[in-house]
């Protein structure tokens, strides 16, 4: 097993590294990587991003939002969290979560903490989750990755993963809330995340410990490409959500409004606006203009400005409308 040294904490770059390792690196040897992200929300492959996040908190804290290749629910990463990735050629390890989580359980046992693999792809201590795991299969190669909460900011996690109560419906995968814990709370002595990382690497790699290499300049260039073209793009993190419907209603001094949007591939594909206000223009025109616009604040705002919102909703300000459409 070869260990890839990846000191980057840029989540978009790190997602691109994983994609490179499974799809493009033709290695006869299995690959292992330990890595960390600066504060990030990582949504599952088939999740509707806006159903999973608290955009106000995320913007205020400068948290990055990325999508991963594997499935399941949204997770929060920061530098108190450690991620591990295996890329193996043997597709018989498919769905074998115990094999990949056992070294984590064993490492903790060595440190005096009793952890166990739970049926639902998690590793727990006293029934509380500290590690979520997922797999992604591409041809004969399999990627298994997991998170390990060592001393993450749980308060920030809870806030970042607390979506609005807007009425959104989609077929996307919903996150399951779990009671979580940090490993550091359970350790008999004190240990830094860097020390824990070394102990874990020794346990996982055994005699292969120290067989490591950084990405080559050519590989870095390719990863940068994947990062820019896909993982750092709005199209992937938000636009690749499954289709969803959004319904927003609000009461203003000038009347009530009820807006319904269908969003497919990140674009408004249908729009209806109802209300009991007086308007000069035909509201159908406004709906017509919104269809085909990306469901993204900057795009929707320029669409509204281009056609003059006041024609259709005389008393409504742009900020009010944006606030209603993006919660």
């Amino acid at each position: 097993m070869i260990t890839i040294i990846n000191p980057s904490t840029d989540p978009c770059f790190n997602m691109a590294v994983e994609e490179y390792l499974i799809k493009e690196l033709d290695s006869p040897e299995d690959i292992f990587m330990l890595w960390q992200n600066r504060p990030t929300v990582v949504v599952g492959r088939n999740q509707n991003t806006i159903e999973e996040i608290n955009p106000a908190f995320i913007e205020q804290q400068g948290i990055t939002v990325v999508r991963r290749l594997s499935g399941g629910g949204a997770v929060y990463h920061d530098q108190g969290n450690l991620n591990f990735t295996f890329v193996v050629n043997n597709s018989r390890d498919f769905a074998n979560f115990e094999k990949f989580t056992l070294p984590v359980v064993d490492t903790l046992a060595r440190l005096g903490v009793k952890a166990e693999y739970s049926g639902r792809n998690d590793i727990t201590i006293q029934g509380r989750k500290f590690s979520g795991n997922a797999q992604y299969k591409h041809r004969h190669r399999l990627l298994h990755h997991g998170t390990i909460l060592f001393d993450s900011d749980i308060e920030a996690m809870v806030q970042a993963l607390n979506p609005s109560k807007a009425k959104i419906t989609s077929k996307g995968i919903k996150s399951v809330r779990s009671r979580v814990t940090n490993i550091s709370e359970h350790l008999p002595g004190s240990l830094s995340v860097a020390e824990f990382k070394r102990v874990l690497a020794e346990e996982i790699l055994g005699p292969d410990y120290g067989q490591d290499r950084p990405l080559s300049p050519t590989e870095l260039k390719r990863v940068q490409q994947l990062c820019c073209r896909k993982h750092a793009s709005w199209d992937w993190a938000y636009g690749s959500s499954p289709p969803f419907n959004l319904r927003r209603t609000a009461a203003f001094s000038w009347g009530n409004i009820d807006i319904r949007l269908d969003i497919k591939r990140g674009m408004i594909s249908a729009c209806r606006i109802y209300g009991d206000y007086f308007a000069r223009g035909d509201i159908r025109e406004l709906e017509y203009h919104l269809v085909g616009t990306l469901y993204r604040q900057t795009e929707v705002r320029s669409c509204l400005e281009a056609i003059s919102l006041q024609e259709y909703l005389p008393q409504m300000g742009y900020d009010e409308m944006i606030g209603l459409l993006f919660v």
Partner: peptide, 13 residues
């Protein structure tokens, strides 16, 4: 396309 199960995501070719 993509198929997601409770265990994994697999690419559809």
């Amino acid at each position: 396309g993509v198929i997601e199960s409770v265990k994994a995501v697999a690419t559809l070719f």
